[in-house]
Design a binder for these strands. Structure first.
Lengths: 184, 184
DNA sequence: TTAAACATGTAAGCTGTTACATGATTTA
DNA sequence: TAAATCATGTAACAGCTTACATGTTTAA
């Protein structure tokens, strides 16, 4: 499916970037729903260059440090746009280890279950706070054609997802507390 | 990390199963947040057997059709329980291709964006309806120590997640409609 | 009698992570 | 001058998907 290919092409439409810069992008807002490390990015950039979807110029910092600044080509833009127009089938499975654990939680005593849930709750709350803080950079909805629009909607989605997970965790805790009260 | 190992061990605690039956389990409720196909399961069962965490008896249906019915061993139960007690770090990234597309959505005209969103909406709504129908099997919260408790809480979570995604999609559509009105 | 379900396995290939490997430049 | 950041690559391995491969039993 080569999603990384399209992720890179999409980022290069914003502006030409080095592999190193692309790797950084995958660690900010984007990181909530897509990630790639440099060991994936460099080979992919090479491949995209072979396919004629990107080109690069070499930049020199200081005396000898070379950086390849990649730009998307016309063909690259075309392929990216075609991909972007396609309907996406929703995935059957969103792998989630914690939910797998909860699926098996009848094997744990109530106290342990609540401990595990509280631990998750705390982590998600922390993440939520970070996301909310980031969202303060968007006092209003960005222009539809600005690339900040995409940032904005996925950030909103990330916040809503964290809130939803916390709500689910709270309900789980509620079920366990109610169940433990009946049969302690 | 070998999550599949623990997923299989957890399922075998419920009851002894064949590889074929395990594969089926990964296609029902569990499928929302974990999946494995038979080509992964059979080698893993072999490995677990080598490690002494499961054993099997051969069952014969009809004249010659053999099935290996796997049971978890004491060691297997111990390892599983130890795993289940561990705190889980929340993942930095939950890969989501559709959100990646939306991240790049400034490259699409508003009509196409709304088309893509409506398409997702419809798919998630369909999934939601299926989940809600399934949840009717749980008129009340199952007993804390019944293995239906795990089924129940993750099903609740799956429903909440679908509702949340639909809410996000609706908000996205709202942003686009509002933005397109200002600058058509 | 035929299609669906039962049943088990292997192989090739893609994706992704962690570690290995090296070195330059900038900033504190 | 030392640490952080910039910069690029490869290798080994784990995980997962799709296809290949084979055959039996049951229910319509």
């Amino acid at each position: 499916m080569r999603v990384l290919k399209y992720a890179i092409l999409g980022l290069l439409i914003k502006r030409p970037m080095t592999g190193y810069e692309l790797a950084k992008e995958f660690n900010f807002e984007l990181a909530e729903f897509w990630h790639a490390s440099h060991s994936q990015i460099y080979p992919e950039l090479k491949k995209l260059n072979d396919e004629g979807l990107v080109t690069y110029d070499i930049e020199i910092s200081g005396d000898i440090l070379e950086a390849k600044r990649y730009s998307i080509t016309k063909e690259g833009e075309l392929e990216f746009t075609q991909w972007l127009h396609k309907d996406e089938k929703i995935p059957k499975t969103q792998k989630d280890i914690f939910r797998l654990r909860m699926y098996f939680s009848n094997n744990l005593d109530p106290k342990t279950r609540i401990h595990l849930l509280e631990n998750q709750r705390q982590q998600h709350l922390k993440r939520l706070n970070t996301l909310v803080k980031t969202s303060e950079q968007y006092p209003e909805v960005p222009d539809l054609y600005s690339d900040r629009f995409g940032d904005f909607v996925v950030l909103k989605g990330a916040i809503m997802r964290q809130e939803n997970i916390i709500e689910w965790i709270d309900q789980c805790i509620g079920y366990i507390e109610a169940g433990a009260k009946n049969k302690p």
